[in-house]
Design a protein around this nucleic acid. Structure first.
Lengths: 130, 130
DNA sequence: ATAACAAACGTTATATTATAACACTATGAT
DNA sequence: ATCATAGTGTTATAATATAACGTTTGTTAT
């Protein structure tokens, strides 16, 4: 059995920072933030990020090369991710919508692929910025 | 009025290569391919790529940092892009589906954003690979 | 035709993002 | 206890992307 959900020291440090952040964080900005805690190298960050993504604790915003904490308890394995991204203030909002997710997964099946996951990124101006 | 759709020399060179390619191309692999034509620096490639994207001639596959030619004549301004990506053979297929596009644009509006565009990437195994 | 402007160009340098490789350590299972 | 697995720390380097600068070319208006 896979070790339930225990995080290693570095994974916990990285996750904490991402969870506390208001918006998406870049790998190197995480790195600079943890150097006081004895983490010195990009590898240490990227390794933690990879595992956290695998566990569904965080997501990567591909268009920004940045990482956000997962807010929806039910996206265990991150098969279906969707985000609203404000082009002005950089805010990122995770969209958790069962209907959308169902619609998209079945849509993809029709197209002949063996579906594994999707990632959807919306761009525009958020309520505040528009 | 905006100059219709004339491509500059470098833009044409870059577009030709992307259109001839079977799959997505990375910026530096484009660069290596055009050095015989006197293009020597990444800037030259990235500038052409930026313009081609603006014109809707190509799209960036964000999860791969790679570029594909646009095959759907009707996505003039690339507001709504969707791709199927095979995780095994790296094949990328542009999905052009008016219903999907409509569904997603209106979905986003409901969420309170001033919608500009979206990008959707499906991952899985293509017909050949599954 | 020519002046004025915008777009594209070429170039050097550098920033940013990400991975390779290797030796070592901790943990859990049998 | 030993074996396998996951995690650590480190150095080095690869891959992706942009800044800044001066020049050239193409377009438009006069």
């Amino acid at each position: 059995m896979a070790r339930a959900q225990t995080l290693s020291r570095n994974q916990q440090i990285v996750l904490d920072i991402i969870e506390k952040a208001k918006g998406p964080l870049k790998a190197y900005s995480i790195l600079f933030n943890v150097q006081k805690k004895g983490i010195n190298a990009p590898q240490q960050i990227y390794r933690a990020l990879d595992k956290l993504i695998e566990m569904g604790k965080i997501h990567k915003i591909e268009s920004k090369n940045a990482f956000v904490a997962c807010r929806s308890s039910d996206c265990e394995i991150s098969k279906a991710t969707a985000f609203s991204i404000c082009e002005s203030c950089e805010m990122v909002d995770e969209i958790s919508d069962a209907k959308l997710s169902k619609y998209l997964s079945s849509f993809n099946h029709k197209k002949g692929m063996k579906f594994k996951r999707f990632n959807l990124e919306f761009f525009g101006l958020c309520k505040k910025c528009k």
